[in-house]
């Protein structure tokens, strides 16, 4: 570790990613490294994270992710975290190969904070979303080898005074969603659930409950998505971002929402077992 000083033309500016490239040429973060040519990562099972969802409500956004990671048909981890704060006013969730995904989030967090400290002001939400797109694009060579990482990004836009959601594809394409999105292996079921329950001007509590219900439905249909686990006390991670910033809900509140969803479900089914 040394003091990194650069000549004016060489300066990486406020980008931490650029700084890493300058000080360790060719080394970079693990997911940015060129993969071995012509081989797919067969012969070993890659740990995968699955369902994540985000939806907008009247004064912010809710982001939620289940806790299961799988390696092929087996459960690799029961309490992995897939929803993270990007910085104070944003959240990022990941689906796909867990190793590179978690590393990408770690680098993204440092990138945002680094920019904020060097420049003295934080990036706009749009700027943060574009930064993440660049990271996803840099990851493309590994995605071609099967290590796909697809993040979901949401945050509070202080300029527009509203919550916004951004989705990505493996090529680094960045798309803004108007109201909600879900991705991962159970994403389809989660998205349908949200679609049916979503309306303009949801309250925070309603939005949280809808997110929890979406994950419940996803876990019901998708083997790779973990449902609530009251025995071990493991619940999905649910976070909100509003004008006050990122806040992760405590497990107690998520458990309560689950109980409410289950209760409603029991009544609808009339106690029958289907």
């Amino acid at each position: 570790m040394s003091l990194y000083l650069f000549a004016p033309g060489q300066d990486p500016g406020p980008s931490f990613f650029e700084l890493l490239r300058r000080i360790e040429p060719g080394q970079g973060p693990i997911w940015g490294a060129p993969p071995p040519q012509g081989r797919s990562p067969s012969g070993f099972e890659v740990r995968h994270g699955t369902t994540i969802a985000a939806l907008r409500y009247a004064s912010g956004v809710v982001m939620a992710g289940d806790r299961r990671a799988t390696e092929g048909p087996s459960i690799a981890h029961r309490s992995i975290e897939k929803v993270f704060p990007g910085d104070r006013y944003s959240a990022v969730a990941i689906a796909g190969a867990a190793g590179p995904a978690v590393e990408m989030v770690r680098l993204f967090q440092v990138q945002l904070e680094h920019y904020e400290k060097v420049e003295g002001t934080a990036l706009t939400l749009e700027g943060k979303a574009n930064q993440l797109a660049q990271m996803v694009r840099a990851h493309l060579p590994m995605a071609m080898q099967g290590l796909v990482v697809v993040p979901l990004f949401a945050g509070w836009d202080g300029l527009q005074e509203k919550g916004r959601i951004f989705t990505y594809d493996v090529t680094g394409g960045r798309y803004e969603e108007t109201d909600f999105h879900a991705t991962g292996s159970g994403g389809r079921d989660a998205k349908t659930t949200i679609k049916l329950g979503w309306r303009e001007e949801l309250t925070r509590d309603e939005a949280v409950e809808l997110a929890v219900e979406a994950l419940f439905e996803a876990a019901d249909e998708d083997a790779a998505t973990g449902g609530p686990d009251p025995v071990r006390g493991i619940y999905p991670i649910v976070a909100t971002v509003d004008s006050g910033g990122f806040a992760r809900l405590d497990d107690g509140e998520v458990a309560e929402r689950f109980a409410a969803v289950l209760h409603r479900r029991e009544r609808a089914e009339g106690g029958g077992s289907r």
């Binding site: 570790m1 040394s2 990194y4 931490f16 000080i23 904070e113």
Partner: peptide
């Protein structure tokens, strides 16, 4: 700026708790 770069690379390579003022002061 050099200090921020040192601290962020160190925290990224090791852990956030490994960043301290003493090593930065020595570098300066």
């Amino acid at each position: 700026v050099a200090g921020i770069r040192h601290a962020d690379t160190k925290g990224y390579a090791y852990s956030r708790d490994d960043v301290d003022a003493r090593s930065l002061a020595n570098l300066y």
